[in-house]
Amino acid sequence: MAQIKCQNISIGYDKKPVVKDLTFSVNAGDYLCVVGENGAGKSTLIKTILGLIPTVEGKIEFGDELTKKDIGYLPQQTVVQKDFPATVLEVVLSGFQNRMGWRPFYTKKEKLEAQENMCELKIDNLSKKCYRELSGGQQQRVLLARALCGTQKVLLLDEPVSGLDPLATKEMYNLIKNLNNDGITIIMISHDISSAMKYASHILFVNQTPFFGTKQEFKNSELGHKYTHFVGGCTNE
């Protein structure tokens, strides 16, 4: 049973579909890259999977003991966060909100777990630092640690490397790959097809006629030819 499965769904806003006939499935341990042009509906898809907006047609099915709550989310940064006074630890801890219910405070165990997640992403030395004073790469790692607090199953990453310098980008990709090797399913939105081809196991290309398949299938498809050729050089990875 797949963790997430969609059969011919349409997604969009206010009942106006942006993408029609979308079919794909995600199994445990997959690394799915969602690629496509700006405005093609990538963010719409993310929001639909998270249940923030309803599907226009069809239903997203969750299986393999996965519920909507088990999806860790790394959203794009917002303006609000640019000058937000908060320590790294405060931000990371807020990832536990999904299991809090009406309980007002974090438990000792959760604080320990947050510490472990920060260790894993090599930001444990920053825990008392102010979020707004970190570099872009560090901030993304903090948000990734927060997403990890919410789940150990599926991570949904919305352009995790946008605005990062090449070195930070590479580090971020490696961290994500490590998490994937630990068994966490990754769904990542990306602009960067060459990196998608390098790290992902599956590709979902979102546009008028969506494509879904393994990396190899995408490479062999007409669409894949066009894009990998266009990007150049990445097919020999």
Binding site: G51, Y73, P75, T78, Q97, N98
Partner: peptide, 15 residues
């Protein structure tokens, strides 16, 4: 704090 810092994330995690 969660709602103020990141509304999208809070909403996605069921708040």
């Amino acid at each position: 704090f969660a709602v103020t810092f990141d509304e999208n994330f809070a909403q996605a995690s069921g708040t």
